[in-house]
Amino acid sequence: MKSLRKQFVDLIVTLLVFIYVIAPVAMIIMYAFAEKWYAWHWWAPQKLGFKWFKDSMLLQEIPRALFYSYTIALVVTSVTLIIAFCSGYVLGTKRFRGRSLIDQIANLPFAFPAIVLGIALLPIYSRIGLLRNYWGVVLVHMVGAIPYTLRAVIGSFRSIPPELEEAARNLGANKLKTLYKIYLPLTWPGLVAGAIFAFTWSLNEFVLTLLLGFPTIFTLPVNISQYMGEYFLSPQRAAVLGLFLLIPTVALLLVAEKYLTPESMGGGLG
């Protein structure tokens, strides 16, 4: 049994961690709901309400940014899943020469500064007509989304005993049928987790959209940056948009964590 003093110390430390983690989140919630907040009363807003939410939805650019953010994320997720499922099968279940090279190429974006990719693609996009184009933004979002999805999917493939595939092949199933009938139903937790990674990645991608999509294609993160001093300062509006991104992202990633098996995490860690 712990002494009362030790329990008190434990409680204090836990509380400090709680405050440290929650304080910044509490701030944007306060900014989003603060209708009146005078400088002389800096410690708390004088009136709370939904004024900034209503105000933001009335602006033409914000519903458009919401539309672009969520539709681009959906398209990126779908295409990323198809690519990750096909290549995850080969990378997760086969041993062949060149496998580690492909694996490393797929891991490159983890160590690749997004700004460098952006300025490298800028003149290329401009020449091939993808600059400020919806599909150009989709493609560039996939660069960052695929590695995370692939890690989760490879982990799922690795956790499946290879005897299952052998049995299916011995019974006459071809590779595509094996993928569809055996692997697809067994790898779905990894696929769900991978889909969530891809979706949240695309939803929160900022610099590449700013460089390659803006001003024609603008997503929520780009809009937030505009309200943070790039064009003019409106922390309340930025906070509202921040909540539109933060709440779905945290909720989805918590779901992803539930679906991620230790094997998928192993795949994730390479």
Partner: peptide, 28 residues
């Protein structure tokens, strides 16, 4: 500690927060 579950959840929370939002939260 007795509150280790809460402690772990809190300590892992920032992993789920997007970079731009976290930067903005700290800016405020």
């Amino acid at each position: 500690p007795r509150w280790s579950k809460l402690f772990i959840s809190m300590a892992r929370f920032p992993l789920f927060v997007p970079y731009l939002i976290a930067s903005f939260m700290w800016w405020t």
